[in-house]
Write a protein that binds this DNA or RNA. Structure first.
Lengths: 338, 338
DNA sequence: TATTGGCACTCGGGAACCGAGAGTGCCAGA
DNA sequence: TCTGGCACTCTCGGTTCCCGAGTGCCAATA
């Protein structure tokens, strides 16, 4: 038995099953793919593949379907790179071009990814910790209330309303503005927080309290881990195309999609800038046993956040990986230049 | 035949059907509700109600289910106000309390609404047109690029990157800042846009071009209708509880939920501050023939945006209406005070 | 006149049944 | 090592059949 033909059979099974969503039999296989051997031979190969746990049959008189392990093998060793068509590239570029806002970029990316892959797309907002502070703006709301706006390099904007223990006047406000900006602007979040913390000690005693409150709020905003949980989900309607059983597949997906923390974990496993794939039960989530995640990090120099798609294990891995990769690159570029 | 008993029967049918999701028969009805009459009598009433088109039977040997018209009647005339429990009120308050951001408020509201009603919740961002400008901030990115940040009273923040036709220096930047703020700050969006438009004519000729570009971008940002389409959806997982047929009910819902424009239309029909209900085919959307929308506007003095829930026609109207109403009030309060 | 018990009738849905067809494993021969 | 042949297995779709819930109608009754 030839080893490479056996692998060709595995590849053919994966491709056919992904395309048709039906168990594929030996006869259909030799007809569709020019394997140059008879169905009986293929059957032998299949038996061997099943022995190795790469494929399985749902019931005795049915064709074979790939197992998680089979998909994994396919992804790691068999899948050929599927370059995007120029039309697709153009679509990506033009789709993301008009974005003038971080929110815009994120929302468009999700949409785009969902459309390209025909699956559920997830995009995480750039993580706070990876940003630098671009500007701190303080706007007086009343004589004792202040709106602090934190503008970050990634385009994120955080705001907080602050109650001030003293009456605001223009001079105090100006002082707050210039000192906070001098400490924070241009710094990475962590450094900015550190620099800000020393501010209250550096000003006149009667202003120390006010500075303390403002600085505390800013620092809190900078280290708010909850806002790192921000993700956007799109293409949920593609769940409908799964054709899969509702109970076993779609319901848990919907539930997981609501749980942003779970999603982040799914994405987060893939925080490098390489495209990573989680297949079926490979993760710790039992309910998602029949779904796979294709994800990657984005960001020009360092990884700012992750994005990816979620779909049934039976999905077009090469296509999804290519799309995820391409979108991540475009997003990285956009964030870098703005 | 007593008219009011007939209506009691209708109410009982609606309540039972909503609770059990199964056609309700005459016998079950007299057992569960103390109607004080025999099943036969109820059957007569049912026949009359069916005659009037308020209920129907899915097939001959089944119980009755309410028609859209029946639900409408129930909502308009029969439903008793269902005040929220104090526990629920407390939950709302504490849930929304910690929000320090418009984004936060919106996201928490969706979640809350979805949780309270066990349905899909939709919250629209406050409309731009209804806001006033709180502050315009301009941050230099490089010597020819500028980040404009528009801070609005509702807490919305819009930003744009602007290419400047001249070199930026601190003095020019200061001039831009003070003039734009003098024109725009405190004004309603429409007025601010108008006031800004005259700016380029008021400055020294060599600055006019720069002012033009900045003003144009600001005005564009203020009148960007696309960003009025912003809505957030939550509780999609509750779709799974419909138990309803997937194809006929859930798929179109998922598709509609992706189409934010459609959602806005659904909400928008209800732009007053009263809770309005759209039942089944009452809207122009054929695919959503078996879903209802309970929505209302929020905002303290005027309506800033809408929020509501979407669910199967067979839903708990009194409960949903109460929840929508309550959440809208809380959101209004929060937006008002911040 | 409104209500009620009785009764025949309808019809959906689940259980049981059955046959066709796809696919397999195995074996003997090339 | 591959292939053709063959007996075997099991799912799936269609059909039939029966049970029971629920109805409509009617005659009797308060």
């Amino acid at each position: 038995m030839q080893e490479d033909r056996k692998l060709a059979v595995l590849r053919a099974i994966v491709e056919d099953y992904v395309a048709t969503q039906e168990p594929v039999g030996s006869k259909a296989l030799v007809e569709r793919h020019r394997l140059g051997v008879s169905p009986a031979t293929v059957r032998n190969d299949m038996a061997a593949l099943e022995e190795e746990g790469l494929i399985a049959q749902p019931h005795t008189s049915a064709g074979r379907i790939p197992t998680d392990k089979g998909y994994r093998f396919f992804v790691d060793r068999l899948s050929r790179l599927k370059p995007l068509s120029t039309a697709e590239r153009r679509a990506i570029a033009s789709f993301l071009e008009g974005a003038h806002d971080l929110d815009d970029v994120v929302r468009r990316s999700v949409r785009l990814l969902a459309q390209l892959t025909q699956q559920v797309a997830i995009v995480q907002y750039p993580q706070l910790a990876k940003s630098t502070v671009r500007h701190v703006e303080l706007v007086a709301l009343s004589s004792t209330r202040l709106l602090a706006v934190l503008i970050l390099s990634t385009g994120r904007v955080e705001q907080r309303v602050i109650e001030i223990p003293a009456d605001l006047d223009d001079e105090l406000l100006g002082d707050l503005r210039s000192r906070t900006n001098r400490s924070a602007a241009g710094q990475r979040i962590a450094d900015a927080a550190a620099a800000l913390s020393t501010l209250p000690d550096e000003v006149a005693p009667e202003r120390s309290a006010t500075f303390s409150v403002v600085v505390a709020t800013l620092v809190e905003a900078m280290s708010d881990h909850r806002s790192d949980e921000r993700v956007v989900v799109g293409g949920t309607a593609n769940l409908a195309r799964f054709g899969d059983s509702f109970e076993s597949s779609i319901r848990p997906m919907l539930e997981a999609l609501e749980e942003h923390v779970v999603l982040l974990k799914l994405l987060g496993e893939a925080s490098s800038s390489q495209v990573t794939v989680r297949i079926g039960r490979e993760g710790p989530y039992d309910q998602l046993s029949s779904t796979s995640v294709v994800a990657t990090g984005y960001g020009a120099d360092e990884v700012l956040g992750s994005l990816g798609v979620v779909g049934p294990t039976r999905m077009d891995y090469p296509g999804s990986m290519a799309a995820v990769h391409a979108v991540a690159r475009y997003v990285s570029d956009i964030l870098d230049e703005s």
